[in-house]
Each structure stands twice: as C-alpha cells, then as structure tokens.
Design a protein around this nucleic acid. Structure first.
Lengths: 113, 113
DNA sequence: GAAATATATTACTACTAGGTAATGTATTGA
DNA sequence: TCAATACATTACCTAGTAGTAATATATTTC
C-alpha cells in the first residue's frame, strides 16, 4: 500500500488541488458546482476527478445533500500526515516556526472556539 | 514565471527527492556520490537530475570542492515558501501545531545554538 | 414519468516527468 | 599527456496524469 505521506505530497503537487483545498479551508462545506464555478478553465468532470484524488489521499470528506455533494477538509489526516514530516526539518526552521506560532496565536484571538 | 510554491510542491512530490532532502538534513553537506550510494535502484545521472530539480526549486545549494559538488539544504527558501502556505491552514491544525511546537522546544534543549 | 440537474465514471488524447544510456566537461593523478 | 574520477547534460523511452467529451446514475421538478 502506498505511503500516506506519498499520497499527501502527490495530492498537493497539483495547483488546482491546492486551490481546491484553499477554497474548502475558506468556505467550509462546499459543493462540487460551487468549486467548478471558481475554475473557468476547467470542466466539471475535471474538478470531480481532482476531488476524487483528494479523497483518496484522505484530505477531504463529503456528504450527500440531495443531488449535491458537500465537500470539506479532513483536517486530521491532513495534519497527521504533514506534522511528522515537518518535525524532521524543525531544526532548519526555528525562525519560521516562531512566525507561524505567532500567526497561530493571532488567529486564536480572532476565532471563537 | 512559475510560482515558488508551485515549484516547491512539485519538488516535494517525488519520494526520491524527499529522501534526498532527508539525507541532507541528517548529514549536512553531502556529495552527489554519497547520495547516489543511498539509492541502489538509481543511477548517478538520475540523482543528478533530482538535485537539479531541487536546486531549481531553491531547496538546495551546492559548492564545488575539486571535482566534487557538496550539496546542502537551503533552509531559508524552504521555510519561506512553506510557512505562508501552512499559515493558511493554521485554524485546521491547532492541535498538530501544538505538538509540533512541543517538538521544537524539545529539540531546542538538545541543540547548542 | 419525462426533463433537467448534479455529480461520477469511462475512454481517449496530449503532455509531463522519471528513468537509463551515452556524451560532455572539469579535475585529479600517474 | 593520458587515464580515471565526479558530476552535468542530452537524447530517448515509458508510464503516469491532467484535461476533455461522452456516458451513466441519482435526484429533483414539472
């Protein structure tokens, strides 16, 4: 079986898929049609295929709502595949991580939990 | 010109290249020949091509030493391309980030600065 | 139930990218 | 200078993948 990290990075390699993840992060639940509308250069079946790829990598999850399919981020798989990889490089990053942490705390204030 | 994040994720998509980065992170400066020795399934020109790809993505840097080429991580580009991307997903990650931060602090103790 | 909608699936094409082998280019050493 | 070393570059092959169009499957609406 293919490694989870492998799947993750392969999924992230495509700019369209990264953009889809961005949109899902911004909007929370989103239908395929709403996503298609964001990609004038692509046709519905293309987006659907990307969503299948993201689902195979465990990065998204979906629930039916009538004839629509609502997609959302699967944040656990996302974080759990990426974190150990990031950790390996931690020594090379202290400064960047500090900035990230600062951002995290800043955002913490903005959100209601 | 292709986006830096695009280059980054494309570079990270290949498992051989990720392994090369791992090795460079572990060993610091490493020659091409030493890297080749770690990949029994690959031939020297293949590794060289991967190194060129990593260099194009700004992830590694090299200096000549006679007829050898010493490669090392270019941690700045690495962190600066990845951090803003990570930041976008920060809300989806608080827990994982906390673990990462803990790791960072733990490693902090181990290293002498 | 027929038409329309929303998404998934399949078949196909074109391009990309990883791999090797062969060649090129410095550099070291005899 | 000639051979060997270390790496880069090129040409080529092949496999994988992003894209489309066409088809299939539910689901809603008329």
């Amino acid at each position: 079986m293919p490694d989870a990290q492998d799947e993750l990075f392969k999924a992230l390699a495509d700019p369209t898929r990264r953009r889809v993840l961005d949109l899902l992060a911004e909007r929370g639940e989103t239908t395929v049609g709403e996503l298609v509308a964001e990609f004038p250069g692509l046709v519905a079946s293309g987006i659907s295929k990307h969503l299948m790829a993201l689902r195979a990598a465990g990065l998204v999850r979906s629930t039916r709502d009538g004839r629509r399919q609502n997609y959302r981020l699967e944040s656990e798989a996302f974080a759990s595949a990426l974190t150990p990889w990031l950790a390996k490089y931690e020594p090379y990053w202290s400064a960047a991580l500090e900035r990230l942490r600062a951002l995290a705390e800043c955002a913490e204030g903005d959100r209601k939990d």
